[in-house]
């Protein structure tokens, strides 16, 4: 038996944050996720980080672009944490926030140049 989904009125409102990684050498999804969580836990602490509802949903190794989801109340905190990222395992890189959107469709259209017909 599966857990029953929350009614829509009780679900957390989400936002999607598009980002692009600039680096001197190729950076994988694992590197990006590890670096983002390291900075988030370091800057905000475990208690605040638990309120972000942050999850990296997509990352393309080729274009080094991706997006993550978070609660709509924590967009500023997530963007601040992305700004703090500067390295993981001796790989120097930075994360540039491309934009924030309420839906994946709009995010792809506005910031990631992925238009589905």
């Amino acid at each position: 038996m599966r857990i029953k989904a929350l009614p829509s009125s009780l679900r957390t409102k989400k936002r999607y944050v598009a980002f692009k990684v600039y680096s001197q050498e190729p950076v994988t999804r694992d590197d990006v996720v590890r670096a983002i969580w390291k900075e988030t836990l370091g800057f905000l602490g475990e208690n605040k980080a638990s309120e972000l509802e942050m999850w990296v949903l997509d990352y393309d190794n080729g274009s080094q672009q991706g997006f993550l989801t978070c609660a709509h109340t924590s967009v500023e905190a997530v963007k601040a944490c992305l700004t703090l990222v500067n390295s993981v395992q001796d790989k120097k890189f930075m994360v540039h926030v491309l934009g924030v959107s309420g839906t994946v469709k709009a995010l792809n259209r506005k910031f990631l140049n992925k238009v589905k017909k």
């Binding site: 600039y22 967009v75 905190a77 700004t83 500067n86 120097k92 540039h96 926030v97």
Partner: peptide, 17 residues
């Protein structure tokens, strides 16, 4: 170095935090 540069959106959020 160029890797130390940051975009305006992120800097604004960091200052607000």
């Amino acid at each position: 170095s160029w890797i130390g540069l940051r975009g305006g959106d992120g800097v604004y959020s960091l200052l607000r935090m």
